[in-house]
């Protein structure tokens, strides 16, 4: 069970959280402007990173806020957590440096 540092509440057990898939995928402002391929890309295509992966979590049974985490998918170490809407931290700003 992971220990996840909610940007608002601090370290909390994974039981309180819900996973939300890859982070930093903005819904297009005008979906109608996208052709089918571009829309399908937005809807379905996700990275399958080995190593540092930016992903969404929600502290569902806590402050109920969504936030982002960079997790090393190999070791399950969480390298950073940060508020939704803020940019992904640079590799040097992650726990233990670049993953």
């Amino acid at each position: 069970m992971l220990l996840i540092t909610c940007p608002y509440c601090g370290p909390r057990p994974e039981l309180e959280f819900a996973y939300g898939g890859q982070a930093h995928i903005a819904r297009p402002q005008q979906p109608a402007d996208l052709n089918d391929d571009a829309w399908a890309e937005h809807l379905y295509m996700r990275d399958n990173a080995k190593g540092a992966h930016a992903e969404r979590w929600r502290h569902t049974h806590g402050c109920a806020r969504f936030f982002n985490a960079v997790r090393d998918t190999g070791s399950d170490r969480i390298l950073a957590t940060y508020e939704t809407g803020t940019p992904r931290p640079a590799a040097g700003d992650l726990v233990g440096g670049a993953a």
């Binding site: 939300g20 969404r56 929600r58 569902t60 109920a64 969504f66 939704t84 809407g85």
Partner: peptide, 13 residues
């Protein structure tokens, strides 16, 4: 509720 919060918090804050 989770879907609504998702759109509200992450797409339309």
């Amino acid at each position: 509720l989770a879907m609504m919060e998702d759109y509200l918090q992450t797409e339309w804050p």
